[in-house]
Design a protein around this nucleic acid. Structure first.
Length: 482
RNA sequence: GCGGAAGUAGCUCAUCCGGUAGAGCAUCAGUUUCCCAAACUGAAGGCGGCGGGUUCAAGUCCCGUCUUCCGCUCCA
């Protein structure tokens, strides 16, 4: 990351705090690592992003419906999804190189080396022992196995290892009021499973025919090893997911469809195409037969903001197996029962929020009428998403101008978020609205009293036009329309 | 978790060789002001991250601890 980019990222973080977008969690207690709170402007912006996504999914697609599943779910769900087995990895550190390894990766790498040397029996024996020890969660035994095989770190080439420690992706808690009788359950690490386990409930009650989608927005929790980079990687975060259920064999075309469709959604906000790129996965997760990330060029480089995954029938089949309940769909067109395939679109709401901040934040140098230079900090937030849509400002706080301004607010606030301010000079008030991304300001002056017209000032161009008071609401609504 | 850097007002930062903490911007109240951070008056805001040590005296030196940032390790 260049110094310039780093400074820009720092400036965005400071700005986010100063103007009530994002605060560090528990700040008066020194903060809580990788957890953040959204302030007044932040919660509005976040809600607007969420609404825009929700509408684009459930309102603009006739065959997509929404649900709101609980964060708590039956613990067996995480066995079926693979999270219990795949994401609770024992880790070990080399004391000399300070490198950290997943124990299974370390041993598997050694086994591969044995195979290359033609020692097939030793390879099998090693892997078999490892699997047994992993199943028993015998960490002392695993460490012994590493030492007995003289497995070394590829960097330091020593076998000076720490003890093995467990890394758990999922947060656990207890359900049930009586200690002892309580059962361990997990805070969901993804929202998708709430959709899968409700697949038949939703399909039947909403009378949906394949292909159809189920959308959901909600919190998820992951115990990341390294959680950092502001709100980009948090331990508690919000996902906007849509699982699209399709006939087996059609996954390739639907994967392509959603890949295009989702990028269009991003571009519909007016964010430049060249800031985006697709990043196909070469190493696929245990449930996918194709996957890619939609990456955005943040100030910290190109990073994933959204994932498109072809999840096959892995999840539904797995839940069918673990629950013993049939999760098939009868397809009238081909007269067949089958377990549907799934294409997932999954976007991080917090990452999208950071994307909007990164896209919007701008320190402009402007030339004033007298030729002198001036600067302004302006957030070019897409108009639809701005926390406040309209600021109404009496030019002076007397002569009845505030009263007119108040009446404009009264007429507009049922339709979009408005803000009234009479303090300070008009230029200062404009700049304050620029700093939080308010796209429109209306100023009431003495002429207003004569002909009921006001000045409408645009955030991005700083241009002004004179319009009639009665035209304000409709003019803005037209621009703010979905 | 390891290595490096840093924690002083809401933000950005000063405070020289240890001597009871300051600026700009922002905020609040008021005066003035007819369109782009105007001016003036006043106010509020700090246990110098926290704990300990050295010293007559610590924001400043030492130790610990917490937090943040950068790099590495992991990442569905």
């Amino acid at each position: 990351m260049s110094v310039q980019q780093e400074n820009r990222f720092q400036a965005i973080i400071s700005h986010a705090k100063e103007y009530g977008f994002v605060f560090p969690s528990s700040e008066i207690y020194d903060g809580l690592s990788a957890v953040y709170d959204y302030g007044p402007n932040g919660s509005e912006l976040k809600k607007n992003i969420r609404d825009y996504w929700w509408k684009s999914m459930t309102q603009m697609h006739e065959n997509i419906v929404g649900i709101d599943a609980a964060i708590f779910m039956h613990p067996t769900i995480w066995k079926a999804s693979g999270h219990v087995d795949n994401f609770s990895d024992p880790m070990i550190d080399n004391k000399d190189s300070k490198k950290r390894y997943r124990v299974d990766h370390l041993i598997e790498a050694h086994a591969e080396k044995l195979a290359m040397e033609g020692k097939k029996e030793e390879e099998y024996a090693l892997l078999k022992t490892m699997d047994e020890l992993l199943a028993k969660e015998d960490y002392a035994g695993l460490k012994q196995l590493i030492e007995d095989n003289k497995i070394t770190c590829s960097v330091s080439e020593t076998s000076n290892w720490t003890d093995i420690r467990q890394f758990n992706l999922m947060f656990s808690t207890q359900i049930g009021a009586v200690a002892g009788e309580a059962e361990t359950i997990y805070l969901r690490p993804e929202t998708a499973q709430g959709i899968f386990v409700n697949f038949l409930n939703v399909q039947k009650t909403a009378r949906l025919k394949i292909p159809f989608g189920i959308a959901q927005v909600g919190k998820a929790f992951r115990n990341e090893i390294v959680a950092r980079q502001f709100i980009f990687r948090m331990r508690e975060f919000e996902q906007m997911e849509m699982q699209f259920f399709i006939r087996p064999g059609t996954q390739k075309e639907w994967y392509e469809f959603w890949k295009e469709e989702r990028l269009k959604w991003h571009l519909s906000l007016g964010i430049p195409k060249e800031k985006y790129q697709y990043h196909p996965h070469t190493k696929l997760a245990h449930y996918a037969d194709a996957a890619l990330d939609i990456e955005y060029e943040f100030p910290i480089g190109f990073k994933e903001v959204e994932g498109i995954h072809s999840r096959t029938d892995f999840d539904l089949s797995s839940h069918q197996k673990y629950s013993g309940k049939k999760l098939t769909y009868f397809d009238n067109e081909i007269n067949q029962h089958y377990v549907p395939y799934v294409i997932e679109t999954s976007i991080g709401l917090d990452r999208m929020f950071l994307l909007i901040l990164s896209h919007s934040y701008d320190e402009e140098i402007i030339t004033k009428e007298d030729g002198s230079k001036d600067s302004r900090v302006v957030m070019h937030i897409p108009e639809k998403l701005a926390p406040i849509k309209l600021a109404v400002l009496p030019l002076v706080k007397k002569d009845g101008l505030p009263e007119i301004a108040r009446s404009i607010i009264a007429g507009c606030k049922p339709y979009f978020k408005c803000f009234y301010e009479e303090k300070d000079a008009i230029g200062k008030r404009y700049r304050r609205q620029d700093a939080i991304g308010t796209p429109f300001c209306v100023t009431v002056d003495h002429q207003t009293k004569e002909d009921n017209t006001v000045t409408l000032r645009y955030r991005d161009s700083m241009e002004q036009e004179r319009i009639h008071i009665d035209a304000i609401k409709d003019k803005l609504l037209l621009r703010l329309l979905f």
